[in-house]
Design a protein around this nucleic acid. Structure first.
Lengths: 235, 235
DNA sequence: TCGTAGTTACGTACACCGTACGTAGTGCGG
DNA sequence: CCGCACTACGTACGGTGTACGTAACTACGA
């Protein structure tokens, strides 16, 4: 088979090993691991087909035997890091269970800072994504709510985790591709912000800046946001 | 000035017109409008320095006189579409005001489907972003809460809007870059999903699929999520 | 008033990207 | 055992962001 299918295809529906031909030199897990290694070390933008192939020690175009499109490589990566979740037996306290799961997700994203950028509902059907979803639902087994409501809760928790981690790591990730340090970037931006506030056009922000409450407690902000979301479903 | 500064720089701190030299042929607004036009018509990935320059009718490298880096072009684009907000006098009902603002944001993102992908806290300091923030704060003037709490609420509303619109438009945006239609893509993915559910490994999802509640009411889901967030700050 | 420094304009060039295509070799199914 | 489906991979194409060099132009300092 040379050339790509003219019909849409989910990579997970493809068998890893075809019947004929020589046995493949790598598994999907090998490829995903190589890509994850590169993304962790050099950022998502450094993940190119050439670099992944080099990491594996094969020709660039050989990769296309395993992954029909680069998008599918992203899907493999997400599924690979989602394989690290632990799914303990639900305790009966669904709030505690979902909080624990959200903390796992947050820590995973902090280890793999490129995950928030790839998070998208179209990637929501990989094997490990399905396991995650099924487990989330199992935590809500005792809750009297329609399926739709449960899904809305799970989506909202995911949303909170993703965007909050994205915020935490944004400047650090950004400075990776820039010719100056994170601190210099931060200094330039706050300098500009202060100059703007000094114009008097933003009195409420000015008042807040005058207070100066000290450094932000990221863990606290995250936990509060999470608890609020759970509370809002817990009339 | 040839070559780029070795020191970080916020594009908004640059004067639009330098003292010396010939007068620039374009304004920042011209450039942003051209880029927005391309992104609206062909998607964010179609926005390249060459295409924007062609749209403006100038040489590619001339753009770098206005925009030191492509990232800054994105910042111009976000600021441009944020210029369309209307900020009516707060009514005194902060919930209603924030809901109205969130609806404006959602409609803007539905018009400019590339916005969620660019949303990031590092772009949060453009002139129109500051106006948006200041207005959000003004809606909360009568609320008895610390500045930090208000910011957490605003961040959470933004998060809900961004991720929900991103979900709404995900498959449509994705199919733009694929050689098959949105419907074919959807069919392939649900086909795979059904085959997975049929394995019996996901009993809760299977049960939900058996019910089949009909099409999802996107507006309703969005409004419920929004109201829940607001409720959670409204003890 | 007149250099001249700093700006605008932009063509060329480089390194890198995703991937279409062609060819060679390999091993299972009929 | 034949033939086909598969793996492997080199080459090449059209695209990207942008460094660099050069020419034209204008506002300011002397």
């Amino acid at each position: 088979m040379v050339g790509r299918p003219a019909v849409p295809e989910v990579i997970w529906a493809r068998p890893e090993r075809a019947g004929r031909g020589p046995r493949p030199a790598f598994s999907r897990a090998d490829i995903a691991a190589a890509a994850v290694r590169i993304a962790d070390a050099e950022g998502l933008d450094a993940v190119s087909m050439r670099k992944v192939a080099a990491e594996l020690g094969c020709g660039t175009m050989s990769l296309y035997n395993y992954v029909p499109r680069k998008e599918d490589l992203y899907e493999l990566m997400l599924d690979a890091v989602s394989g690290g979740y632990e799914f303990p037996e639900p305790s009966g306290d669904w709030r505690a269970d979902l909080i624990a799961l959200a903390h796992q997700a947050r820590e995973m994203m902090q280890r793999h800072t490129w995950v928030p950028r790839l998070m998208s509902p179209v990637y929501g059907f990989s094997p490990n994504a399905l396991r995650y979803l099924e487990y989330s639902l199992s935590c809500l087994d005792g809750v009297d709510a329609r399926f739709g409501e449960k899904m809305e809760l799970i989506a909202m928790v995911t949303s909170v985790v993703t965007t909050y981690v994205a915020n935490e790591i944004a400047t650090a990730e950004r400075s990776r591709s820039l010719p100056w340090s994170e601190e210099q970037e931060h200094a330039a931006r706050t300098g500009y912000l202060i100059s703007q506030i000094a114009t008097g056009k933003y009195p409420r922000m000015a008042a807040a800046f005058a207070e100066d409450p000290g450094p932000i407690d990221l863990d606290g902000v995250f936990d509060r946001a999470l608890r609020r979301v759970l509370d809002s479903f817990d009339r």
